[in-house]
Design a protein around this nucleic acid. Structure first.
Lengths: 156, 156
DNA sequence: TATTGTTATACTCTATAACTATA
DNA sequence: TATAGTTATAGAGTATAACAATA
């Protein structure tokens, strides 16, 4: 029994089956776990991605990394300033094109990334367990890839 | 071949298999489609959810709706001001507890919600097609529910 | 005292325009 | 002219504290 006398008949979608709604809730949950897990290391998701990308491919230009991660180059500046101020990464003037900065990890940045990967493993393990196991993680990724198919995706 | 002479060996996760990363990308894509679809109606996801909830259960208190949708009651005020200013919903002083406001659709709000549901169907149909069909939508929802299990979820 | 709605405020993300130094 | 990085700024979204009216 509803709270109104005349129950108007809209054909409202059930919130529990709305893709965008569930997707947002799940994403917030995963990011919450990430933030909690990395609170001690004071690392945000975007910083994680940037450090991971520099570690994997040192020497990339600022704009290349920003674009690959979907970060506007204007907003990337402060992020990179932070990593540099913490002594984790540095910018080097490109010797061919002196306008550009190529990005590298410092020795301390390399140590930090090793710890970061270990911490990330904890977090991801927890998420995979929630899903039911690695096969279910794969099934989820595959479904999300279908949504993203045909996108100007970050890499690949 | 990488861009560095000594390829330091971190055990970095592949970005393509990171749950949080994929989840965020997919959520942004779905919300982008939503925003584009509802641009003409000038309706944001949060407003959609609020109108849908008022339509389904008229008479709920402001705080009940805000909490159910994960919106802080302080932030709900401006959102509700907007819906009221557009003549879609209104607040009525509770006659038992005169501090509270119970929320209802106006007649124009009811017409708006009918159009909103039709527009939403377009959007969701597009997302379901991307996923591969309704069964795949169900599989996705089921996996996302596993992530969300044990949460102080909105409704249900 | 506690709660509902409200105001004010602040912090993060994101987006755009315009500047500088190089090309 | 165009591009890489930068600065300034503005808009969402979200978070907290404190207040008035009411319980």
């Amino acid at each position: 029994m509803t709270k109104t006398a005349k129950p108007a008949n809209f054909n409202l979608p059930e919130r529990e089956t709305i893709i965008g709604y569930k997707l947002r809730r799940a994403q917030l949950l995963v990011f919450q776990d990430f933030l909690h897990t990395f609170a001690r290391m004071k690392l945000r998701p975007a910083e994680f991605s940037v450090l991971a990308m520099i570690a994997r491919t040192p020497g990339l230009k600022q704009t290349e990394i920003a674009e690959a991660l979907g970060i506007k180059r204007a907003n990337f500046v402060a992020l990179m300033d932070g990593l540099e101020a913490r002594g984790l990464a540095d910018r080097r003037k490109g010797d061919i094109d002196r306008r550009s900065h190529s990005l590298h990890l410092t020795p301390e940045g390399e140590r930090f990334v090793r710890k970061m990967v270990a911490t990330w493993n904890e977090h991801e393990k927890r998420m995979i367990e929630r899903l039911g196991g690695p096969e279910d993680r794969d099934r989820l990724i595959e479904l999300l890839d279908r949504l993203l198919a045909g996108e100007p995706s970050a890499d690949e």
